[in-house]
Design a protein around this nucleic acid. Structure first.
Lengths: 351, 351
DNA sequence: TTGAAAGCGCTAACAG
DNA sequence: CTGTTAGCGCTTTCAA
């Protein structure tokens, strides 16, 4: 009847501790749960602590989970793990989870299964207590599903509206900061290269516009070019810009990948960076440092995004009240590397 | 007494299914466990299946885990998640885990806690059934700890000796393949730039040597330069090579990062790639495509490494016998991009 | 073929 | 302050 697994035989359980400390299991349990308003005699607590130490007791999370119908496990749904940003976010989430006594499951990168289903399955079977949602796919469905399950979740590095808890980045402020760097270098024709469709794009363009306005520069629609988020977009985008009568002297790419594309075209066309043209990336990562010239970019507290989101989720799961459930973290700083420099003198007067 | 959580009230349990199907919970359990040598009347099985469907029953993993002292959870210890390779491996592991009905925990990237301890703690408390070990830190301690716990584990993309199960890459073969690409282009002075200290380095150098020998080229010790695994190593390494009387016409870097460093120096020195010098990277990843010129590199089945390792681990955990527990996967192919080309004609005769 | 019942390890009501 | 006890949902032995 008793499963005769290695683990089952070896494991020290709460009664063992209780016996060793000459108390009932209930006391041990109560002490373990760290209940602030619990009253125990100091020597009792002492004895129990010692027994726990001595026996190397660790509570069995399955039993506890069964009893409390909680798993102390969170899951993070990630769309594409093969990206510069997610690993760092995961790392932060992992750290926070660990600190709060939770485990972190990473899922949803299969791409094959529908995220909402995955989430639902996990939640329904009590496998997880809460969800960190970073996905863009199936956004609406997912939220609906989560709403019907009334599952605790936090949106990570992403937000939809002010109805849902999120931890995101102040992309608008960051975009303004790096654009400002370019205006301060004397650039007056600054282009934006990146995805324009989604909300992220809109916010970045808004920040870019803020900085232009601040510097008293005119808004030039031909300088804002749809370039998506991949290398190819950066390439075609820059070509489009170079074909203009009055091409930009500085280009802000939405990420390192798009910047890399732009850089490749610049190299091919014999345009020297930063001498002939400055190039900056909106977000910093592993790649920025590796390109030559290395890319000026904005550093973001990505690890902290994961960390804060997880901390928030834990609080929600545990029913604690929260000062804030909508957080936008400011960018860390603009990292100056070698791809940006003073605006070139006007190359040719228009006839 | 009953915890009045939302979940606890809503959840459909095995007795509900049993009642609906007019059988005992035991039957349902047995049918669920998919026991091949189980005998039930077909109509009974039918009724049970229908009931399960109808009620949308999912077994509670906590209860099951408590009973069986298993968690159906695996953990992967990753040293630094912020690396081009790990995310892909994780993705493969995740997929395999899911397919076998396991969850995957990702841990150990904190860097702060000692991996062996983490692993031990996880295992001891029945939290996880097996471990995927990719870490290099604390290698010896870790294995000792794992050995004493007699915990099931598989080494991923890494091996120590033939005593432990592993899924790794045939790095030697891959190194030979890409070196061969360079010899076939007519290069006769080919340098190797990378970490030489660890086993990985040794194997890559061995493959490089294989291909040189194959092509009848002499072994030139001055062409094998310690460059570690980071950008800086690539920079100083290439400088060292350029200072030689007879510098190489082709350089093989151990990874994209080192290659990026070398490329930066080449650019700075006015060396045109691939016209004056070819540059190849041992391993392919996100970065290779982004550099200009883009890097010729070897593609590895990293996703498969994660997948196979996990499949192997599941088999070990479940006590199934295995055809193989030491696997080296061959490389996928050499991806030809724009950083390699025919060897230049000898630039100057030696006086 | 099927069912009854015990118990995995823990927590929380309730009673001392 | 501390102990007794029931039961979370599942599996499995043993009996029918």
């Amino acid at each position: 009847m008793t499963p005769k697994t290695r683990a089952a035989r070896t494991t020290v359980k709460i009664v063992d501790v209780a016996k060793a400390a000459n108390v009932s299991p209930a006391i041990v349990s109560r002490i373990l749960s760290n209940d602030a308003k619990l009253v125990v005699r100091d020597d009792t607590r002492q004895r129990v602590q010692e027994a726990i130490e001595a026996l190397g007791y660790t509570p069995n999370p399955q039993a506890r989970g069964l009893r409390l119908s909680r798993s102390n496990t969170l899951a993070m749904i990630v769309p594409e793990i093969n990206s510069p940003v997610f690993p760092v976010i995961i790392q932060g989430a992992q750290r926070a989870a660990w600190e709060h006594g939770y485990s972190l499951l990473v899922g949803g990168m299969g791409g094959e299964e529908e995220d909402p289903q995955v989430a639902g399955r996990l939640l329904r079977s009590n496998r997880i207590d809460g969800l960190l949602v970073t996905t863009g796919r199936h956004e609406e469905q997912m939220l609906q599903e989560l709403a019907t399950l009334n599952a605790p979740f936090v949106l990570v590095n992403r937000y939809l509206d002010e109805d849902h808890p999120y931890v995101a980045l102040d992309e608008r402020g960051a975009a303004a900061a790096i654009t400002r760097h370019l205006t301060e270098l004397g650039h007056r024709r600054i282009a934006f290269l990146g995805g324009l469709q989604r909300r992220v794009g809109e916010r970045r363009v808004a920040g870019y516009a803020d900085a232009l306005a601040e510097a008293g520069l005119p808004w030039a629609p031909e300088l804002v070019v749809e370039a998506g988020y991949y290398k190819h977009g950066g390439e075609s985008g820059l070509r489009q810009l170079l074909a203009l009568d009055d091409p930009p002297t500085a280009v802000l790419a939405t990420n390192e990948i798009v910047a890399a594309g732009a850089m490749a075209v610049a190299h091919a066309e014999g345009i020297r960076i930063p001498k002939d043209m400055s190039l900056a990336s909106f977000s910093d990562g592993m790649v920025a440092e590796l390109l030559s010239p290395s890319l000026t970019a904005v550093r973001f507290p990505l690890e902290r995004v994961g960390y804060e989101a997880t901390t928030m989720l834990v609080a929600i799961v545990e029913g604690r009240s929260l000062p804030q459930t909508r957080i936008s973290l400011p960018h860390d700083e603009v990292i100056l590397r070698h791809s940006t420099g003073a605006a070139p003198r006007r190359r040719r007067a228009r006839p």
